[in-house]
Design a binder for these strands. Sequence first.
DNA 1: TCGGGCTGTAAAAGGGTTGTTAACGGCGTT
DNA 2: AACGCCGTTAACAACCCTTTTACAGCCCGA
Lengths: 265, 265
Amino acid sequence: MTISDPGPIRLAILDSDSGFVRVLVNRADSIGWQHRHLESAPRPEEFGAMRVNALVVDLGLLGPGGWDFLEQVADTVPGLGIVVVTGRSSVAQRVRGLRLGADDWIAKPCHPEEVLARVEAVTRRRRQANSRIDQAPVVAAELEIRADQFQAFASGRSVDLTRREFEVLQLLAGAEGKVLQREEIYQQVWGYAMAHGDRSVDVFVRKLRQKLEGGSPGWRYIHTHFGVGYRFDPEPLDGVGEVLDAEDASPATVDGAAPAGFALR
Amino acid sequence: MTISDPGPIRLAILDSDSGFVRVLVNRADSIGWQHRHLESAPRPEEFGAMRVNALVVDLGLLGPGGWDFLEQVADTVPGLGIVVVTGRSSVAQRVRGLRLGADDWIAKPCHPEEVLARVEAVTRRRRQANSRIDQAPVVAAELEIRADQFQAFASGRSVDLTRREFEVLQLLAGAEGKVLQREEIYQQVWGYAMAHGDRSVDVFVRKLRQKLEGGSPGWRYIHTHFGVGYRFDPEPLDGVGEVLDAEDASPATVDGAAPAGFALR
DNA sequence: TCGGGCTGTAAAAGGGTTGTTAACGGCGTT
DNA sequence: AACGCCGTTAACAACCCTTTTACAGCCCGA
């Protein structure tokens, strides 16, 4: 999952220039970055599975197909920072690359320290935005979400979520009170862009609702916003008379600042 | 306005190299970017007020104090993309700048097209990362409009708007006090031109009025301007006649150009 | 005051979205 | 190799929303 603590930067390097790669990898190691060296272009969505934050790629290596590759990676994995490195290049080429989705473009020969500094700059924003949203309120109503176990507990009892289910729940809960669009959810959890017509998110929400209801009846956690997406907001479900006292109060909106969150439909 | 339209890029340029600035401004104009040219460094927080997306700055212009300035701007204005442009520079300087918060660093002389492409790349990434976080709720009378939830709240209780209803309300409220013509509203919300005779806007205004009245009686929010369009302006509705005179005042500005007929109801 | 055009209002029609279920297939385990 | 778990995909029904249509009421100019 793209979320959870910032952690070290994870870098993918797609280049066959062994000298360049070696020195880059050395520097990366010494500052604690994780990295993965690729000799040939993988399918774009694989970068999502690798959970890398940024890609350093030598477009020269890919030949004419490089442009397509760049474009596909950029819109398949929106969260990925892309730093292109090449030998000689023209202004027109650089402009084209940047427009297609590259975040930076560096000419070889270049100092590895600068490459890393640029990767860091490219990565900076996204990571700070994510870390803010994700250090989720670990508890919500009767739910406790434990990232260390990839599990959620309702009143102390495990809800028995699968990995994907847990990730979806963690993401939603981490953005408590906010409506997340399906595309955002998919992008964050799966790591790459959602195909048109994909219903996976709906199916997982359905499974989550079912399991949460099983472990914590009396509460509704996930709300649907028709035509938009889903929102996590624990809400007591005063169906019949129960929870007589001191309970229904304050659904406790968290997040930024908020009026009482509430049931839409 | 499907979900949120970023609008054109707004650029601040801090440089005294008139030739460079002139050519940059020309290109920016021709692609529809808005810009602002500064000769000296403003206080960092001013960039927020200028509502610019990115800053192109020649660090050479600022001398030794440039580093501090860079750092302060980066810390103070989180949403701002910073592109540094300089004459000769060393790897160490570039690394330092990037680490302090610069998003890109370009050496002069450089092609204006590349500068703009880099600004675009920086802005693209920035917008993506910041899109869902700093959305201040809009408040008007008893209403609170929250973009992060696609919802409006009246006295803390959800008004339960559908997506379209919300978008129409958001648009109107965002132009508080201004009369918006049906065509404008339709164009903004639906994203394309309104067909002749389409009554959709009327119908949505009707629904909005109904729901707003339900959640916040005692206030009238949307006013009709016969032959023109609608205007959002919260107005207390205390039952009995009062404020006998002082009525004809405030003609309420009509955005573009408009026929004159009137009468608020 | 009259008439045409504009707006308010209601309700039907239709299409798009979501809920829900189940079959399918990959993958790791037994 | 068989089994079971899990994620994906397809299908269908239910539901919600938007659009369309119709008619009544209102405003304004003639």
